[in-house]
Design a protein around this nucleic acid. Structure first.
Length: 315
DNA sequence: AAGGCCACCTGCTTGC
DNA sequence: TGCAAGCAGGTGGCCT
């Protein structure tokens, strides 16, 4: 499901709904979903219980919630790290509405305390919440990770000003919506690669957040073939491609953001509103919106590439 | 040692 | 109808 726009939509939902809340209970229903957690469920639980979720940050497709001892304490040194994989979702529900057992695909359930604001009267307190990590295919995962300094000393990602990043995310490059992204440097790094341009777009160590959908959409907008050699692309061409990727993800983010209600943190990429705006992804056999030629799907790196055989030629 | 392949897991769709 | 193969939005690790 989730590429950058979907994960950012989830981050915004978390920022709105769970900040300042304490973790009251941790229930791991599928060990595999916390396979990256050293020490397993016990370690996850003891790292989270009683701690406060103090921010909602994102770089590329990785999300993290820094955890503090108490609301407002010093800069946290660890965070709850979440990757949604192919099919992950987060759902927030008021505890009173959860009368029945979690559904089959709920892999981890957190119970979060009331948002404690000093001076607030009890009747004004928000109710406790359930935060469910739902994941059909279980490629997603969740763990508590140490926060370490960023390589460039700048903010770790969207949603935080701290120059810190979870250790397992340190190798992930800044994404195209990150204000601290160095675009000229990225273009040079791409030109120094000897590979096909789509492989470069999908390499999260080079630029993060782009997945198969937005890679195909950006290549179509920039009129580039997925296998075009990176070391033969001009700076102008690459600027056009990266701008197209920025545009398509920004548009998807705006479309995704509209389909939200207050207590449902959703991930809805292809089934959501934006799927109607896709030019090539999943559109094989349908006419290219630019020239009318039927869109083609070809095997690529154990998945598929969708493109217009006329607009996107190798030269 | 950069580049590329594949396993990891579940469930739905397609085709014989 | 039944069963197998194909397909799905990601990525870490391992091979060359």
């Amino acid at each position: 499901m989730p590429e950058l726009p979907e994960v950012e939509t989830v981050r915004e939902g978390l920022e709105r709904l769970v900040l300042g809340r304490a973790v009251l209970d941790v229930s791991v229903r599928r060990e595999y979903s916390i396979r990256r957690q050293p020490g397993g469920a016990d370690a996850l639980e003891s790292a989270l219980l009683g701690r406060t979720l103090s921010a909602a940050a994102r770089r590329g497709k990785f999300l993290w919630l820094p955890i503090a001892d108490e609301a407002g304490q010093d800069t946290p040194d660890s965070a709850l790290l979440i990757h949604l994989g192919m099919s992950g979702q987060l759902r927030v529900t008021e505890i009173d509405e959860v009368a029945r057992e979690p559904g089959d695909h709920v892999r981890v359930r957190l119970t979060l305390g009331v948002a404690a604001v000093v001076g607030e009267r009890p009747e004004d307190l928000d109710p406790a919440l359930i935060l469910d990590f739902v994941d059909q295919r279980t490629f997603g995962h969740l763990s508590v990770a140490r926060l370490i300094p960023t390589a460039d000393g700048l903010a770790g990602g969207r949603g935080t000003t701290d120059p810190l990043i979870p250790e397992p995310v340190a190798h992930i490059a800044r994404d195209l919506l990150d204000p601290d992204l160095d675009l000229p440097a990225l273009i040079q790094r791409i030109q120094r690669r000897r590979t096909g341009v789509k492989r470069a777009l999908l390499d999260q160590r080079l630029v993060s957040g782009i997945g198969n959908i937005y890679a195909d959409e950006a290549l179509w907008r920039a009129e580039l073939h997925y296998a075009a050699a990176t070391d033969r692309l001009t700076t102008a061409r690459l600027e056009g491609l990266l701008t197209a990727a920025q545009d398509v993800m920004t548009e998807a983010l705006h479309a995704g953001g509209t389909s939200f209600d207050a207590l449902y943190v959703n991930v809805n990429g292809s089934s959501g509103y934006f799927s109607r705006s896709l030019a090539v992804y999943g559109q094989h056999g349908l006419p290219c919106p630019r020239c009318g030629t039927p869109i083609v799907r070809e095997p690529f790196a154990n998945r598929s590439s969708h493109f217009c055989p006329v607009c996107q030629r190798i030269r």
